[in-house]
Computed example of a mutant assay.
Amino acid sequence: MRFDILTLFPELFDSYLGQSILKLAIQRGLVDVQTHNFRDFAEGRHKKVDDKPFGGGPGMLLMCPPIFDCVESVVALDDRPSKLIMMSPQGRTLDQRLVEELAEEERLIILCGRYEGFDDRIREGLQPLEVSAGDFICNGGEVPAMMLIDTVIRLIPEVLGDETSARYDSFSESGLLEHPQYTRPREFRGMAVPEILLSGNHEAIAAWRHEQSLERTEQRRADLLDK
Rank of each mutant, 00 (worst) to 15 (best):
G175P: 06
G56R: 15
R154L: 09
G140K: 14
D78N: 14
D4R: 13
I85Y: 11
V33G: 05
M146T: 13
S165Q: 02
I122V: 15
R121K: 13
H210V: 10
V143F: 03
C138N: 15
S88V: 11
R39Q: 06
E124I: 15
L30E: 13
E72K: 06
Q127Y: 04
G29F: 08
E130K: 07
E178L: 02
V143S: 02
G200A: 13
S165L: 02
Y16R: 09
C138G: 09
V31Q: 10
R221P: 00
L30T: 09
A204P: 12
S172K: 00
I205C: 10
R189F: 05
N201C: 15
L22Q: 12
P185N: 07
E130T: 04
P180C: 03
E218V: 01
G161M: 13
S213D: 07
E163I: 07
C64T: 10
R80K: 15
V99L: 00
T151H: 02
G175E: 06
I26S: 06
G55D: 11
E116L: 11
P89T: 10
D14Q: 15
E187S: 10
S82Y: 11
G44T: 08
Q27I: 00
A204N: 11
P89W: 13
D169K: 00
S20E: 12
T35K: 11
G113Y: 09
P66R: 02
L6I: 08
N201P: 14
L155I: 03
C112I: 09
R216H: 01
Q34G: 07
R186Y: 14
L176E: 04
G91C: 12
R2V: 01
D69T: 14
F54G: 10
P58V: 05
A204C: 12
S82E: 13
P144T: 08
K83V: 05
I122C: 07
V193D: 05
F171G: 00
L98F: 11
N139K: 06
I67W: 07
Q90I: 12
P58W: 09
G161Y: 13
F136G: 00
N37I: 12
L102M: 05
C70H: 04
P128E: 13
Q181K: 05
P81Y: 04
G57M: 10
T164P: 00
R216Y: 02
P65A: 03
F38A: 06
Y168V: 01
S82L: 02
I21D: 14
